[in-house]
Computed example of a mutant assay.
Amino acid sequence: MHILLAEDDEQLSKLIIHKLQKNMNTVDYAPDGETALGYALMGGYDLIILDWMMPGLSGVQVCQQIREQKDQTPILILTAKDELDDKIRGFDSGADDYLVKPFEFEELVARIRALGKRKPLPLKEEVLSADNLYLDTKTHKVTRDGTEIILTQREYQLLSLLMMNKGQVLTREVILDRIWGYDAEVTRNTVDAYIRLLRKKVDKGYSKKLIKSIRGFGYTIQK
Rank of each mutant, 00 (worst) to 15 (best):
V202R: 01
P120M: 08
I88R: 15
Q157W: 05
S160D: 11
L50G: 03
T35G: 04
D203S: 08
K22C: 11
T35M: 14
R118G: 00
L121T: 09
R113M: 04
D96G: 07
L50E: 03
G116E: 09
D28C: 08
K117E: 09
L161S: 03
T73F: 09
K124V: 13
R118A: 05
A130K: 03
I112N: 04
Y206Q: 13
D82C: 13
G181C: 06
K19Q: 15
Y194W: 04
F217W: 12
K70H: 14
Q21N: 10
I175C: 03
A184V: 08
S207H: 12
K19V: 12
W52L: 08
L47W: 00
L20E: 05
P102T: 08
Q72P: 01
G218M: 07
K201C: 04
T220S: 14
V169W: 05
K141G: 07
F105N: 09
Y39I: 05
N132P: 02
E7T: 06
M163G: 01
G116C: 10
R154D: 05
Y194P: 02
E148Y: 12
D96F: 00
Q153W: 05
T139A: 02
G205Y: 09
E104N: 13
L162N: 04
K87Y: 06
L210I: 07
L15E: 11
N23P: 04
Q153L: 14
V174G: 01
G44K: 03
K200D: 11
G167R: 07
K81Y: 11
I150A: 14
R111G: 05
I88A: 11
R154F: 04
R188S: 11
W52E: 07
L128T: 08
K22E: 15
T143M: 13
L108F: 11
D192R: 14
A114V: 10
L99P: 06
Y98F: 13
K212I: 11
E107V: 14
N189A: 15
A6E: 02
H2F: 09
L76Q: 05
A110N: 13
G44L: 03
S13Y: 02
R144G: 05
D85T: 12
G56N: 07
P120W: 02
K208W: 08
S13L: 05
L41K: 13
H140N: 14
P120Q: 09
I211P: 05
K141S: 02
E83H: 13
D28F: 06
A193Y: 11
D85W: 06
L4V: 11
F91Y: 15
A36N: 06
C63Q: 03
H2A: 07
E10S: 09
P122Q: 01
E68M: 12
D32W: 01
E106R: 10
E68L: 13
V127P: 07
L133K: 05
F103S: 12
T139Q: 07
L151Q: 00
K81T: 00
P102W: 10
R144W: 04
L78G: 06
I75V: 15
W180G: 05
I221Y: 00
T147E: 15
L135T: 06
Q11D: 13
D131A: 10
D86N: 13
I16T: 03
F105G: 13
Y45L: 01
L123M: 14
A184L: 08
L15R: 09
G218A: 09
F103G: 12
N23W: 00
W180K: 01
Y45K: 02
L197R: 15
N23L: 11
I195H: 01
T220G: 08
K117D: 00
D8A: 10
Q168R: 14
L161E: 02
K204Q: 12
A184G: 08
